[in-house]
Write a protein that binds this DNA or RNA. Structure first.
Ligand SMILES: [Mn+2]
Ligand SMILES: [Mn+2]
Ligand SMILES: [Zn+2]
Ligand SMILES: [Zn+2]
Lengths: 156, 156
DNA sequence: CTATTAATGGAAATGATTGTCATTAATAAC
DNA sequence: GTTATTAATGACAATCATTTCCATTAATAG
């Protein structure tokens, strides 16, 4: 039931366009991220693909994730513990533009895209206002909510 | 012209209330943060106070900042490079509730509090909606804009 | 198929932060 | 003020995610 290597050809072109080569490690990692809704760390990814590709090293996982981020195929996310997580940038499985709700107890991460309209409005106004007022060329924003998930709340 | 040690007595009580002792290192660091509008790293702080207090170690700076954060006198801020910055939580010099505009070129950080009303409204709606929908007890949020400051923009 | 050069993996390095532990100093009790 | 108690300190080592190095391998152009 897994969609395996399905987009290889599409990806091949994209890699080529960036001057990158298509390699097994890149395909395997992209494939893994395409088939999960989790937000995995480099080591999570390493351990998972190690089951089927024990020859792919952790260093390569890091390098690959950097390449994929550069190509905007993957989004790197920082929830404030010192460990980056990664998710596929465009996925049919999750809303395009979404933010994260992070449990500070167990590090569970929930995607949400509620209130996006209101948010988009605020972002537009803010970006416009701040750009002018502070002479900043804004390229990016970060919105995140922190709290305790149900389980952690109960456990507390 | 520096406001030096002025709040020592007020702080003394606060430390006491938390079961902490008032020490030279704590006073010096609090004093430094009270007299700057910068967002300094532990090492920035260490180097600055080292000029007048060469006996205070970097470890103590870290521990002190942790204590001050715990007391909510200081706010620890993460702009995504692997280095935390600190600022006085309540300062007459900066807006109470503010967010940050970060230059990804030179790490310059600008405080802003524009669009706060609109933002507060969004935050309230979002927190309320997400709390219910995902059964999360939200305690905190993070909003940050990234981009290039005028200087870095020109230099690019 | 061969040459070119990007990509890889394993080990070592990095760098911010934290842990350890003997020593010092802040406060409480006298 | 002196003393006893124990938190706080400083120097150093340890941690741990991520990077850097470099000799080897593999992807692609021709
Ligand atoms: Mn997500
Ligand atoms: Mn600030
Ligand atoms: Zn949780
Ligand atoms: Zn800049």
């Amino acid at each position: 039931m897994k969609k395996c290597c399905k987009d290889s050809e599409g990806w091949q072109g994209k890699f080529h366009g960036y001057g990158y080569r298509m390699t097994v490690a890149r395909e395997v990692i992209l494939d893994l991220l395409s088939n999960t809704d989790k937000h995995m760390s480099a080591e999570d990814i390493y351990m998972k693909i190690h089951e089927t590709h024990p020859n792919i090293g952790l260093t390569t996982v890091y390098r690959t994730l950097e390449v994929l981020s550069d190509m905007a195929l993957v989004f790197k996310l920082d929830i404030g513990d010192g460990r980056a997580r990664y998710e596929l940038a465009e996925s049919p499985k999750k809303p395009n533009h979404h933010h994260h709700l992070v449990c500070t107890g167990c590090r569970k991460i929930v995607d949400y895209s509620d209130f996006i309209d209101q948010e988009v409005k605020l972002l537009q106004d803010t970006e416009k206002g701040l750009s002018k007022k502070y002479n900043f060329k804004i390229t990016n924003h970060l919105i995140q909510f922190y709290g305790l998930c149900g389980a952690c709340s109960a456990r507390a």
